[in-house]
Simulated assay, not measured.
Amino acid sequence: MLIIAEIGTSHEGSKEKAFRLIDAAAENGADAIKFQWVYADEILHPLTGFVDLPTGRIPLYERFRQLECDKAFYKELLDYTHSKGCRFCCSPFGLKSLKELLEIEPDIVKIASPELNHYKMLEALRDYRTDQKAAGKSPVPVIISSGVSKLCDIERAFELLGTEGVSFLHCVTSYPAPEADYKLGVMASLGKIFGVEYGVSDHSLDPMLVPSLSAALGGSIIEKHFTLSKKTSGLDDPVALEPEQFALMVHAVHQTQALMKRYGREHGLEEVIKQFSENFSKAQLEAMLFDCKKELAPSETSNYGRTNRSLHFMRDMKKGEKIGQGDIAILRTEKVLTPGINPMFYDMMIGAELACDAKNGEGLQFSHVIKK
């Protein structure tokens, strides 16, 4: 079992706070500690909208700018994580952050759910792993998360990355995500179909339910957001586990593993359902365990096309202009902008002539380049 404490950007750029988070995660049962390598312009358009913080309302783009740190910062976090006996895991969000992350040689590269269709980044990671293998090295392990995705998105990611050394996490991209939205039968089914290790990235508030049910179905990776306090101002702190809760989750997961080993699959699952039936209905538990149909969860349906990547204009453009490399970008849509077409069409759009005017930040549509 690999238990990942997702610190993300909860350190808020402070090395001292990051070290305290690493200490607490290691002390409370984490096997790996995960961070996010943020450059705002790899994630969002500056006009994407606003976020409400305890300190006031600011542009979401500026909030991400505040979280940017240099390569030396992450190298220190990697070294300190190793000194605590844990593996260093990190999510890049574009070609620059991926390149710099690979330069410090992480133990694991995590592809977050919204980047599952960032095909340019996946292609660069694939090429790096291919070069490693050609040089006689073991390719860096990769974990992909599948929140706010359809089956075709997951299949496309595996087509690009392959399955060797690649693991799969079932996820629901909602903060917080209702426990009932986690159909963990999908996790086990897809893990077996693709022939990869599988597990769950859990954004629900209950510290034990989803991780325990995942372990009962053979999940070997648990990822959960981690914070020193839910009351601090990290973007994900409200849905993260505090140290005592994280330790409780780790204990529950290991208990579930022992229970499954003792009773076997059929009777073990019955025992797991019995353990949680006081707080959750048997019908809900059975649906979470045995529903194997991959579809967007109710809580994340409205996020599809907005949280994951699409093509956006980076400046105002006039009819008749040709689209150049810097004129469009692969970004999350998020708050107020209109989603664009799938990033798989990026290369096709370079050099295309506009059939109408386009606004800065607008999602690129086929109608922008198809003459009527």
Rank of each mutant, 00 (worst) to 15 (best):
P339C: 08
L354S: 08
G324I: 03
F345D: 11
R63N: 10
G324T: 13
F64G: 00
A134F: 01
P141A: 05
Q275N: 14
G361H: 08
G326D: 14
A247I: 03
E362P: 09
Y263G: 00
I350V: 14
A252W: 01
K319E: 15
G363E: 11
L354T: 11
N279L: 13
A134C: 01
A240S: 14
K230W: 03
E223H: 07
H251D: 15
E6W: 04
G185Q: 05
G320L: 09
E223W: 09
A32C: 11
N117R: 14
R20T: 08
G94R: 05
Q275R: 13
H251F: 04
G29R: 05
E12Q: 15
K359T: 08
L213Y: 12
C171Y: 04
N117L: 01
L44A: 05
Y128L: 03
V140E: 05
F19W: 09
I7N: 05
D127I: 08
C89Q: 09
G324S: 14
C152W: 12
E223I: 06
F194R: 04
L259A: 08
A18G: 15
K293P: 00
P46T: 13
K318I: 00
K274G: 01
L44H: 06
D181C: 02
S91C: 12
V148A: 13
D131Q: 14
G264L: 02
F168L: 15
A26V: 07
F93W: 10
S83G: 02
R332K: 06
K99F: 08
F194T: 07
V186I: 14
S281I: 05
S302V: 12
G85W: 04
L184R: 05
K230H: 12
D202I: 07
I58E: 14
G361R: 14
G162M: 06
P92N: 10
A180M: 00
Q245P: 00
L285K: 04
M317R: 07
N360M: 12
R126C: 07
Q66H: 08
L101F: 04
H251K: 15
